[in-house]
Structure formats: structure tokens, C-alpha cells
Design a protein around this nucleic acid. Sequence first.
DNA 1: GGCAGTATGAGGAAGATA
DNA 2: TATCTTCCTCATACTGCC
Length: 607
Amino acid sequence: MDKNLSGEDNDSIDWDTEDELEIQEIPDTTFSSCTNLRNVGQHTVRCHGEASSSSVPCQSKFIQQFIVMGFPEESIAKAIEQNGENEDLVLDALLTFKALEDSPEEQPSTSLQLEPCISSDDSSSQYSENFLDDIYEEDSWSSNSDNCINSADQCYLRDESSSLSEKEQTLLFLANMGYPVEEASIAMERCQKASLAELIDFMCAAQMAREEDVYLPEDVKPKLNSGGYKKRKMYNELCIRKKQRALLDEETIALPNPMIGFGVPTESVPGIVQRILPEQAIGPPYFYYENVALAPKGVWDAISRFLYDIEPEFVDSKYFCATARKRGYVHNLPIEGRYPLLPLPPHTIHEAFPLTKKWWPSWDTRIKLNCLQTSIGSARLADRIRKAMEAMENFGGEPPVRVQKYVLYECRKWNLLWVGRNKVAPLECDEVEMLLGFPRNHTRGGGISRTDRYKSLGNSFQVDTVAYHLSVLKDLFPKGINVLSLFSGIGGAEVALYRLGIPLNNVVAVEKSEVNRNIVRSWWEQTNQRGNLIDFDDVQKLNGDRLEHLIDSLGGFDLVIGGSPCNNLTGSNRVTRDGLEGEDSALFFDYVRILELVKSIMSSRRV
DNA sequence: GGCAGTATGAGGAAGATA
DNA sequence: TATCTTCCTCATACTGCC
């Protein structure tokens, strides 16, 4: 390999990023005018004194290694100031700074201090909710007012009102919640020795009474969305939520470890050979429901409850292929006589991607990839890692543990592979297809964008895992099967059945995304299926009449399969992780509705 | 407007440690 | 046993470009 390209020559490092140019081009006079950059300058001066004439690039490199890792210059300067030139200590400090920045507890509570009066607009209600959330996390509400205030607010109160009496502190606290001081004073006077919760109740009741009083002049009535109502409502909701949480802790279905469900090809669960299903759950039709295992607490209890109290089977696809995929399955299929799809897929990263072995560092101990998601790591991140690695390489040997930790963290998070010397890359679409058990180019072409391919693949079944569960159907339906495939996506269920060699007589696929429907249609044609593929775009349009018509014309369904949207369940979603009540995940109830309708219609036809 | 690239965090479980 | 740490997660929203 070219020495320069390999980064062995110090001068050959690619310094041409914007950040680097900034550092190199900023004169000393500029440093002196900026606190953070001045520190960088100080470091430079120090290094000059210690090293030879080549010390300038040496000094830059010390800073550079942290810049390429993505740390802000200000933090680097601060870390160097605090820790000198010890790489480990500086990196440790930088990671600490980042953790502190990321931690909401460390954010200064300026909003609380500067804006003690809560208005009724949305932003303030959001503020109130967060504020109250913190407050009500504390257990002892009533005994001591100090206990009712979260740590940040305690600091605030200590700072601002350490000299105040308990009564004054309570008053200040209520004022901070947005209650008029006069109202709070009256409440405290009338409800002496009352807890904060009782005081809030009192004021809220007074506001509600005013609202009810139609004879009161408009300007005296509280506004409908006034802070008092919202706060009390939120308080009640939070109390309920807290109680629910306590209940959930007792009821929640625990995830098994190892996550092998009722068994996987390589491991079996002692004592589980067959299971007894509730009478209501016994088919026809067979059904198979799938969703993320790591859903918010209580979700799987609800799913199980709606699906005839069947115990979910939690399986991690890492027992079937080279990538993890933790999913829960509720089904009424037999569990004896399962067999895996052949040929067996690669079980490790190196088996799946043998070319990566050459570049794989010994300290990257990954054997399996993490769950394949709907988005991939950025090119910028890959570049940062390359530069971090190359910067370290110039010091000889392996990168320090801290750098290894940083790189490994990003590699795990984004499922990055080593594709060259110091070079990592996210998985390509066809590689994801292979890992998930789909044919190569399954999602390629037909106008689908790369982003959509990742999204569709990230939302799909792992074919080998699902096929293992469905394999018991082969002997049951030697002449073929009629399938109702709900939320069919890119056709994971269809591909699994096809690969098992189970003829697909009729498939009714319901899928909202047009590109996904096109993918399934295209696969159907390319694999010369002899049956019929009927598709719908919306599960909610599948009403009793349509189902009756389909059942009459196709002769019923043998299998109702599907995994409803997980958007509101997955931990990756930090915006709308609302559980089964979430906008998308609530479609689970359509799965239940349709399954019930199918069972009911088919049952009536048999009579 | 659609697409691609990018930055962004919290919740929970499991393991480690006191 | 309680607390702390580490790891993982079928995503969403914003921005810039065409």
C-alpha cells in the first residue's frame, strides 16, 4: 500500500477539512481574542517549547485527533487546559463534556428562573408537563414541600430563596407554577398545613367554580386553557400514569434470555414440546402476528390479551443469521416439527462478509450485527472514524482504548463494516436484503429510492426466522395455501412461504406503501407464481363486506399474517413513542378486527 | 416538492458493582 | 439487594440540493 495513503507519513494526513484549515490559518492574534481558541494557542506554545522544529504539525495532530472524532474545538481546548497533553485524560474529559451537554439535568434551569409565569400556549404547556413530570416523580408529595421539587428546582429555590421561610418558599413555588400570588396566598391561608397537592386542588377547584359561574363577568373567568386547568389535569394524568406504571411493573411480560422463543434450530427450550392454546385461539385460520420485542412496558400484555391470551414467542434473529432482530410473535401455529430454511444463511459477520476480515481490527469483537434499522450511518461519520484511526496510526500501534471505545460505539450503533484500512462503511441495500433472507435486488428498481429501500427493509421480517415458525404449515397444506397478508411490506411472509416450498394459491396483500406493493408484485411475477395476488392499500378499508366477498370467492383463508407498524413502539423513536395508542401502531387493532371478522365469517360458512 | 444526507435521545433491559 | 453502567433500538425531523 502507498505509504502516503496509509497515513504512515505524518505530512500525508488529509488536513483539508474546513475545521483543520481554520486551525491552521488562524493567526495567534486571533487566538488571543477568543477564550477557547486561545487555549489551543496556549497548547501550541507549550508544545513549541518541548519539541523540535517539527513541533507545529505535532501539536496540531494532538488537537486534530479529537477534532476528527467530532468534538468541538472549544471542548478540546478546555479539556487540554484541564488535563494537559495526556490523550486518555483529554478524551475522557471530552466524553464527559459531551455526556454533560446531552444530559438534561445539567442544563441550566434558566427558563425556570427567567420565566416563572406560565402562559397557556403550547410551548408553556410543554414546559409545564416537563416541569410537573419532574415534580411528580418524587414520592413524598405531601409531607414536606422541599420533597416535591425536583433537584434542579431545589437548587433554584436554595439559590434564590434559601433565606425564605417555608411558607414563602411554597408561595414562590406556586407562583413559579403560574398561579397568581394573591390566589396562592388565599389558598395557603384557608388551607393551613395543607400539602402542595391539596393547595393545587383548592386553587383548581376555585378556578373551575368560576368557570362554571356563567354570571361572572368574562374578565374574571379563567380562560378555558388556563394554566391551572392544564396543570391540574396534567397532575391527575401523571398520577394515573404513575399508578399504571406501578401496575405494569407487576404485570409486564418479561423477555426471555436467551431470546429463543419456543426454540430455535440450534437451541431448544427444555420442557417445551407442545403447548395448549385457549379454545378461542384454535383455528382455522392460523394466524401469525409480529412486532418489536422491546416495546414499552405493557404493550405485549395488551397484544397478548387481544390475541386470545396467547403467550408471545420472543425470538432474536441472531440465532438464524448474522444480524440481531428481537421480535415478539403471537400465533396459533403448532410448534413441533419446525425446521429451518436451507441453505442456512451465514451466521457471523465474517461468514456474511468474508472480505471484511482482512481489515477487521482485533479489538472490534463483534460477531453479529445489531438490528438493521430504517436508516444508515452517514458518510461523514465514516470519514470521522477514518480520520480518527489515521491520526492514531501516526503514533504507531493500535489506537488507545478510548478511541477504540468511541469507534466501536459508532460501529455498533450504525452496523458499520470494515471495508478497507481504517475504513468503515454502512451496509449496502443488497447486503441488508441478504442478511434478512430476501433475494438479491428484491427491493431494487421500479422507481424506489435508496432511502425507501432501507426503510422498507428495516421494517420487514427476517425471512429465515419467520420461515422456521411457518415451516409446520408445509405438511398441513401440501396443495397450497390461501394467505391474508396484512401490513405485508415487501412481502417477507410471502417470500418465507415460497422458500419453504408451500404453494401460494391466493394471497391477499394489504400494504399502504405503493412502492412496497410494487416490490411484491414484481417478485410475484419474477418467481412465476401460479396463484393469484390481490392487493389492497389500506387495512381500514377491509370491512366485513369485502372480507365476506373474498372468503366466498377464494374459499377462505388458511393463514392471517402480519406485523403492524412499530413506529410508536420502538426505542429508536424518540418523538412519538406512544405505545399501542400511537397513530401508526394503533393499527394493531385493525389486525385484531380483521382476524375476528375472518374467524367469524369462516365459522358461519362452515355451519 | 421530492429526495438524500444528517443530527438527534430516551426508555428499558441486562450485566456489573457495591 | 440496590444502584450504577452499558448497550441496544422495524425512527423522526431538519436541512440542503435538484
